[in-house]
Every structure is written in C-alpha cells, then in structure tokens.
Design a protein around this nucleic acid. Structure first.
Lengths: 146, 146
DNA sequence: GTAATTCCTCAAGTTCACTTTAGATCAAGC
DNA sequence: GCTTGATCTAAAGTGAACTTGAGGAATTAC
C-alpha cells in the first residue's frame, strides 16, 4: 500500500478481484491508474468505487462493454457524483424489472406446459413465445423467437 | 425431405436453428441421427422435439452441457414420454423461480441504493450481498459474495 | 443428364471475460 | 544489501456456443 496510492494488489485484496482481472478491466477503460516511477500502477479510492460498480453491474447481467460505455461518461480520475450513480443505477433497475417480467412470463407458460408433454412446434406456447428475452449477459447468447 | 426421414436442412427450417448448430448439438449428444446410404444424416420427428426442448431450455438459461445431461436419460431414438418432459420441466420451473427471487432481492437492494451514491465496500448492501446469484448461463461467469 | 442445391468432414475462427505463463523488473522487510 | 514477494508486459490459453471455410460428394430439380 504505497503512499502515492493503492497498488493493484491492494485493489485485488479489497475488491476480491484477481489482479489479472483488474488489468483486464483497465484495457476496457473501467479504471485508469497512473504509473509511479518504476512503472507500477497506482490507484485512487475512486477506482475502488469504479470497480465495485462494475462488479455490481456484472452481477446484474450487464456485459463489460455496456458497463464501460456507461462509465465512459463519468470523470476518469475522481469519484463519480451521486447523480452519476443515480442515473446509471436507475437504468439498471429498469433492466432488472424487464428481466423479472420476462422470467415470470416464461414461468407461467411453463406452468401451462408441465405435464402436457406436447412441445409441438406448431402449438406449444413455450416454443412459440410472443416476446423475446433480453440478452442475459455476455457470451454468444443468441435468442429465439425473433 | 427424404422419405427415409428428415434431412438436416428440414430440421433447420422447422426449428429455426442453423444447420451448423444442429451438427454441433449432435456432438453434444442432443440428437442422434442415423445415416442414409450416401452418408447424409436422417432425423425422425422425435429429433424435432429434442431440439425444441433444447432451445427452450437454453432460453431458460441452461447450459448445453446441463441440457445434454438431462436428455441423456431419455431414449435416444424415440420421442420422450410425457413423464420425461414433466420431470425435466418441473426441475426447470424451480430454477426459474430461484432466478426470479434473486433478481427481486437485487432490485429491492438497488431501490435502497439509488440516489445514495455510496457504493461503499464496507456498507453498501448491493456490494455485500447476503446471497449468491445462481449462474446466469454459460461462460466464465464468476460470482461475487462467496 | 446435367446444373444447382444440399450435404459431408475437419479445422480454424469468433466473442466474452478472463487466466496462465514466461521472462524480467521493482519494492519491501530484515 | 539482499532476498522475497509483488508487479510489469505480451502472448497464448480457456470454455461456451457456435460459425465459417475449404474441398469434395450426394441429392434434387428441370
């Protein structure tokens, strides 16, 4: 814990992230450490906040690219303001609501299907959804029904 | 649509899957086509069911490996029985319920956090969850909080 | 009967979110 | 001052779920 800021190891200890993950996040613009004389990364407390937020957002199912996009609007070298967080977290709340609603629709359909064993391509409500499920996260997740 | 069964193209047309995806699923044991004299794959109607079910299960967030594991208990060359589907779909329903509950908890926490702007590693309820979120799907999705 | 279409296999490429490895340098404790 | 541990870069590997491409053979349509 050098006097000129937090080391990457400090951040790893305090966030639970792997050191390699923090470096990886840097390449995606989520943190912007400065370098000390020896070329080592030095972080500020605002970087803890930024990482925390990124971790939470991932937990909520956001892809890193989306998180980075949101955080690009925040000042890089200071803690984001209360209104910054409010704006982002409000957007996330909407996303969660949407995902809950979709899962509930799916559950209700499944209730209708359990025991019927039809799974007909022509008639099964599960197979022929009237809606689409929002992307559930990163990866090559392709969607049905549209 | 050869007389001795459905071609892979037929299946693609009727499921909406890409031909390459169907072949890929075969390597994962989801379908088990027979071959005709020329070495081309021939499928039965039960394979339509199996693919349908795999697609639905994916939509519900199950990884292919898990789907394959479940379907491994089903007879390979005939349509699964009603009780087979019931067993699997009931298990899925539980999974959906769990995911809904987790998202709701998360939403409630976020409600408490919107506007507070704290995101403190020590005190933020969002960052220090008392529970874990079930795997949201395939990929290198690591979880916080445990 | 031939052209167009579909299918075959096998290997390699893609995206996301990282981790691992290698070889080298920097910082800290005693 | 030296050793141990942390950090550095760059490249390659991982795993899920596929797609794309090459080169060739089977099937279908006319």
């Amino acid at each position: 814990m050098a006097k000129d800021g937090l080391t990457i190891g400090d951040l790893a200890d305090r966030t639970g992230l792997a050191v390699s993950a923090i470096r990886f996040y840097e390449t995606h613009g989520i943190v912007h450490p400065v370098r000390n004389a020896g070329g080592h990364r030095r972080y500020g407390r605002h970087d803890l906040r930024r990482l925390s937020f990124a971790m939470i957002a991932q937990r909520l199912g956001f892809a890193l690219s989306e998180i980075a996009r949101q955080m690009a609007h925040l000042p890089a070298h200071k803690a984001p303001s209360k209104s910054d967080w409010t704006r982002i977290s409000t957007a996330m709340r909407g996303d969660i609501e949407t995902r809950i609603a979709e899962l509930e629709r799916l559950r209700d359909r499944l209730d209708g299907c359990i025991g019927c064993g039809c799974l007909s391509l022509e008639t099964c409500a599960l197979y022929n959804p009237g809606d689409t499920l929002a992307a559930r996260g990163p990866g090559p997740v392709k969607l049905l029904g549209d």
